[in-house]
Nucleic acid binder design. Sequence first.
RNA 1: GGUCCGUUCGUCUAGGGGUCAGGACGCUAGGUUUUCAUCCUGGUAACACGGGUUCAAAUCCCGUACGGACUACCA
Length: 509
Amino acid sequence: MSKVRLRFAPSPTGALHIGGVRTALYNYLLAKQAGGKFILRIEDTDQTRYVPGAEAYIIEALEWCGLRPDEGPGFGGNYGPYRQSDRKALYEKYAQQLLDSGHAFYAFDTPEELDARREQEKEVGNHNFRYDPTTRHSMRNSEALGAAETQRLLDAGTPYTVRLKIPTDEIVKIQDLVRGEVQFQSNELDDRVLLKTDRMPTYHLANIVDDHLMEITHVIRGEEWLPSTAHHVLLYRAFGWEDTMPAFAHLPLIMKPTGKGKLSKRDGAKLGIPVFPLSWQGETEAESFVGFREAGFDPRAVLNFLALLGWNPGTEQEIFDLEGLIEAFSIEKIGKGGARFDYDKARWFNQQYIMHTPDADLVTTLKPLLAEKGVHQDDAFLLAFVALMKERATVYGDFWEQGYYFFQEVTTYDTKAVKKKWQAERVPLFEQLRASLLALGDTGVPEIEATVKNFLEVNGLGFGDVFPILRVAITGTTKGPAIYDVMALLGAEEVDRRLAKGYAVFNAL
RNA sequence: GGUCCGUUCGUCUAGGGGUCAGGACGCUAGGUUUUCAUCCUGGUAACACGGGUUCAAAUCCCGUACGGACUACCA
């Protein structure tokens, strides 16, 4: 068997959907596992849907995920060009080949005529008009018009499309790697357009020509392509390429978190969750979306989550890095049913990655985020901060959200827990504690702890009488890392300032 | 409507003739912790339905229901 080559072939019509990322991932995994190539091909044959920036977005998204193509636009490779608009002439040539061999025909029907015909059929109760062997002869095409008339129209420069001539009474069998054998009756298939009036190919033609020329061995794509796979098989046959036809695997779709249907970009905005890898700035607010990256996710967690959405290793292991996925992945273990997008699970994966990432690495990724907030502490401080917060963060943004007080004054005080503990007669006591803490100077946790405990003993107070006060005065919240750790990191003078301010706030309650 | 695909706890799933139907997320009870989080222990909860085949069916077959995709000169 020759070397394995898989391609990810997105269309640059906007931001790359998270399902597309999963498709890319599965392609990547299988390619790498087999020691083969992972190829990026841009399917931009629909000029009306082309969106500037979409291709750059796709590439940036793959890069963020760490799925680097071995071949593709900007990545080199000997099978280029890798952008279909740059291969236009090729498709015309192959369309001509099909025309010559009698596997395709010229169709002169305009879109308006086609629409009119559909309407007309609808009126007589036929809701599924199809351009196929049974209707072909009533349309304006080379099959119905004959050679002479066809030539006349061609000579006159009449716009035309090239359609695949579907054979009658054939059974097209597909061996799908995920679903097993799937059969189609050719009589149920339509004479699909191969080459459009603008001389650009449709997906169907381009995809077969390119996969053949690029020597693609496996086509892993979304389930939405399953119904047209019969056409693709027929195309391989028509070209005489059936013996090198790639293997097909159709992936189950990713479904909405709630309700019915497949996950759409609208679901993200509706539920306030990311469904794209990276943020996308559209023309309007409604066409702009936040990405997993901007939502504070680690790409490794996103990949891990995506990998397990529709695939499982057959063991109880859930945490996989890319290398581990490459090793464990197998196409047989891909599920058949659609998988609901579970944002909570995605968050859990992210939390796992944050907890298990070395502190120094966390500092590196957090630095730019903190810098945006005006934080420029040295690494030693950041390292200590990260160590205290990593078990409490689910997304990267949590480090700031839940730990801003390490870098600036407390903005809001959760006084509920303090109210009943803050008694007028104890205020002198707390002032005394503040003074002894300041006198201690910058020091370690054991010293602070000893001082506080001593204070507790001497004054006959319990933990519950003091900790909420210290905690809220210093951090503003009742949650967070051990307060001694926070105090040690902040330093005696800062703690003193915060206690003074906190006491003032409590006194005003 | 037609064609094709699918259906195990709320969710992701294991399991492919004989299992107490397993794990994870979530939720929940408790323990640890000055708090929160982590961590530990326990609980909750599923084979869509109906027929077959078989000594035995979540597992094989057929229907039904439900869900999904496709049905463009879009991918």
